[in-house]
Design a protein around this nucleic acid. Structure first.
Length: 437
RNA sequence: GCGAUCAUAGCUCAGUCGGUUAGAGCACCAGAUUGUGGAUCUGGGGGUCGCGGGUUCGAGUCCCGUUGGUCGCCCCA
């Protein structure tokens, strides 16, 4: 057993693992680019205060934080949102609108590990700044769906549950609740799916038992799963704000339907996301079977940029975590096998032949072909075995017979056929082979 | 922070009632094999049985502790 172990909850990426992670990152990045989002990155280490300001003192227990040699309190970033708010806030007036940004980065949280959760993980983050209307959510939810579909997942595999904190607040106000009670009810709603009636206990402790009729209304609102029922429910209440808000819902759902994405999106007011900073639409992506933790989550946070010292700037965004996502891909058999094969494997007779081969190897590699060869002299039989095992399509044979004739033998390892080509034409022959000529 | 469970080779695991020098398959390396294929055969390297203590003539095996993995609770930005 090695003396030194990986720190608890951290991950190592051996080449097979790294290939899988690269595959995921590559497709996320490509998808974000097709949606016109620009990639950014920022420091892994940030002032601890940035997270205190966003989430409060209690957050510190969940952070990898310490005091640096300059006496600064710092923390490894546990999320991207505060950072991107700072970046955008600092240059808000100079950035061309709409501001559509994404990042793929690693984060650290000091937590106990579970399935789909570790102390270090990666997230794809996408955010839109400066757009107050549902047009931002349209882009974000479409991007979220495509980021999952890009791997072959379908509406059989996942869904996006869409809810709205504004709607909840307007509705609860219409029912006559004050701000403190509304906050407590939202906490209960957030936990209701998991805990059932128990979820209302903290509310009862602060404000006394919730009136029976009121509770019934809240529970039926929570259970709403369609726009039609939603419209029906709020029809007779507080016409102004609720009505206008429903207009935003229609615009959002209409746009997603026009994109052909309606089958992925479900109205589900049971989702409110506990985070206090969300201000409007909120959404979460889950696997259909409900076996895994959330694949992605996001929503609108119109007050956060200003709260962190920037200008007032509306914003919305979401993040996809890599751990649960990779679990889902593997469960569905959608994680490809990544064996990295060279295009060309060189079979080399001896020292003199090796020097000749080196010239071609260098030229082929410079031309973009993946070329490998045995580092040390080996029997021909072994080299052919190695060539076959490597997965290369072509073998180039540099033997004494060939060199005497000024040729190289080119063997098609798939067809098991070979031909001799003059040494000067090796590069052209390989190029033509791989260009399909 | 709490609970359950597990820990023997790089991986998957066996290891009898506590008894001699801890095994197998896969993987890796080499040979058979000095010019043609993923095979086969032979051999090899690789272990502080997670770590520490205890019981015992004797511990991979039993007991206590500890570290770590996995899963769940709290939390989940």
């Amino acid at each position: 057993m090695a003396t030194f172990q990986t720190l608890p909850g951290f991950r190592e990426f051996y080449p097979e693992d790294f290939a899988r992670r690269n595959h995921i990152f590559r497709r996320w990045r490509h998808t974000a680019n097709t949606f016109g989002f620009s990639e950014y990155d920022a420091p892994v280490l940030e002032p601890l205060e940035l997270y205190r300001a966003k989430s409060g003192e209690e957050i510190e227990a969940q952070l990898f934080s310490f005091t640096d040699k300059g006496g600064r309190e710092v923390a490894l970033r546990p999320e991207m949102t505060p950072t991107v708010c700072r970046l955008v806030g600092a240059r808000a007036s100079a950035l061309k609108r709409p501001i559509k940004w994404f990042s793929i980065a690693e984060f650290y949280r000091y937590e106990r590990m579970q399935k789909g959760r570790g102390r270090c993980f990666s997230q794809f983050n996408a955010d839109i700044f400066g757009e107050p209307g549902p047009e931002a959510e349209i882009e974000l939810i479409a991007l979220l769906v495509q980021c999952l579909c890009a791997f072959g997942l379908t509406e059989q595999d996942f869904h996006v549950r869409l809810s709205d904190r504004d709607l909840w607040i307007f509705y609860l106000e219409a029912l006559g609740l004050d701000e403190a009670r509304i906050r407590a009810v939202l906490v209960a709603v957030d936990k209701y799916e998991k805990m059932g009636d128990e979820a209302f206990k903290p509310y009862a402790e602060s404000f006394g038992p919730l009136d029976g009729g009121l509770k019934a209304k809240i529970l039926s609102f929570l259970a709403i799963k369609s726009l039609a029922v939603l419209e029906q429910t709020v029809a007779n209440l507080d016409g102004g704000r609720l009505g206008a808000r429903l207009g935003d819902w229609k615009k959002l759902l209409g746009a997603l339907a026009a994109m052909g994405l309606a089958r992925f999106v479900e109205v589900d007011l049971g989702v409110v996301r506990g985070l206090a900073y969300y201000t409007g639409f909120v959404f979460e992506a889950y696997d259909r079977k409900g076996e895994l933790r959330a694949l992605a989550g996001g929503g609108r946070y119109d007050d956060l940029v200003e709260k962190l010292g920037g200008p007032a700037l509306p914003a919305a965004g979401f993040a996809i975590g890599d751990m649960t996502f990779a679990l889902l891909l593997e469960q569905r058999g959608l994680m490809p096998d990544f064996t990295q094969a060279p295009d060309v494997y060189c079979v080399i007779g001896g020292e003199a032949e090796r020097l000749a081969a080196f010239g071609d190897i260098q030229a082929l590699r410079a031309a973009g072909h993946r070329v490998d060869y045995p580092l040390k002299d080996m029997a021909f039989g072994k080299q052919f075995k190695a060539a076959a095992e490597s997965g290369a399509k072509l073998a180039l044979i540099y033997g004494s017979d060939e060199l005497a004739k000024g040729v190289v033998k080119v063997r098609d390892l798939t067809q098991r056929s070979e031909l001799e080509v003059p040494r000067a034409q090796v590069l052209a022959t390989v190029r033509d082979f791989f260009s399909g000529a």
